[in-house]
Amino acid sequence: MTSLAAPAKTIATICARGGSKGLPGKNIRPFMGVPLIVHTIRQALGCEHIQGVYVSTDDDEIAAIARDAGATVPFKRPAELATDTAGKLPVIEHLARYLELQGETIARIVDLQPTSPLRDTADIELALQTRPDVDLVVSVAEAHDNPYFNLVERGADGLVRLCAGEGNLRRQDAPQVYALNGSIYVWHRPALAKAAKQGMWSVRMAPYVMPRWKSVDIDTLDDFDYAEWLYVRHRGGDERG
């Protein structure tokens, strides 16, 4: 009798190194009374269409907190993938390949940055529903500045000029541009394997647009304090993550 293959899963990955130069210990620093990474774990666990939440870390304390919050930490990340210079895509690919060697069949990987606590479960679900025909969906926010209007670069002559366009547009007439906010990446499995070798821009991607207030990426203490202020302002101090 032939056994049926296991259905392909959508999983969430959360990559969290122990080292941080900008804000030491930031991934487990209490954010609204809860370790920062726990907010992202809870958001992922709340998604109906995610069948597993996995954390890749080199840090024992992060691993323990992640497990207590309900995530799976299948291994301790190898040292060569936990340096300041290690790229994130090889880390995600390493985790996916490990799970596949354990017998998992993976269709999509939702990578969630633990330093983006202001997203919510609904954002992840909506990103999963956005453009299933493309290789990758990335979360973005409307950019504060625009290369067609007020972003300039310095040329070889030392003078500045607009990065794009001819400088004859009003702000409201300039093409809309977005900034990657790093919060959510929805990968089809083959695209992740390709990007891990050739880079993110080698695949076809589409945006999932998030509000600016949800798009803070915590790297410094100022970012942390600002994110907590935004959390209270928009959610009234709700600490459920």
Rank of each mutant, 00 (worst) to 15 (best):
A63W: 04
A64Q: 15
A64R: 15
I65V: 15
A66N: 05
R67H: 06
R67E: 15
R67N: 10
D68Y: 00
A69D: 05
G70P: 09
A71G: 07
V73T: 12
P74W: 12
F75L: 11
F75R: 09
K76Q: 14
R77Y: 05
R77H: 11
P78H: 00
A79S: 14
A79C: 10
A79I: 10
E80H: 03
E80F: 10
D84E: 15
T85V: 14
A86N: 01
K88H: 03
P90M: 03
P90R: 00
V91N: 09
V91F: 07
I92Y: 09
E93N: 13
H94W: 08
A96F: 00
A96V: 15
R97G: 11
Y98D: 14
I106G: 04
A107Q: 07
A107E: 13
R108H: 13
V110K: 01
L112Y: 07
Q113D: 15
P114C: 13
T115C: 13
L118E: 04
R119K: 14
R119P: 01
D123L: 08
I124C: 04
L126I: 14
A127K: 07
T130E: 13
T130W: 09
T130N: 05
R131N: 03
R131F: 08
D133R: 05
V134T: 06
D135Q: 04
D135V: 01
L136Y: 04
V137L: 01
V138P: 04
A141V: 11
A141M: 12
A141P: 00
E142K: 13
A143E: 08
A143R: 09
N146T: 12
Y148I: 11
F149Q: 08
F149V: 09
F149D: 02
N150Q: 10
V152W: 00
E153N: 10
E153Q: 13
E153M: 11
R154P: 00
G155P: 05
A156R: 09
D157R: 04
D157H: 04
G158C: 05
G158D: 07
L162A: 10
L162F: 11
C163T: 12
A164M: 11
G165Q: 11
L169W: 06
L169A: 10
L169G: 07
R171W: 08
Q172N: 15
Q172L: 13
D173I: 09
A174P: 04
A174H: 08
Q176H: 13
V177G: 08
Y178A: 00
A179Q: 12
L180T: 13
L180D: 12
L180C: 00
N181W: 00
G182E: 03
S183H: 08
Y185C: 07
V186E: 03
V186C: 02
W187K: 02
H188K: 14
P190S: 09
A193Y: 01
A195S: 07
A196V: 01
Q198N: 14
Q198W: 12
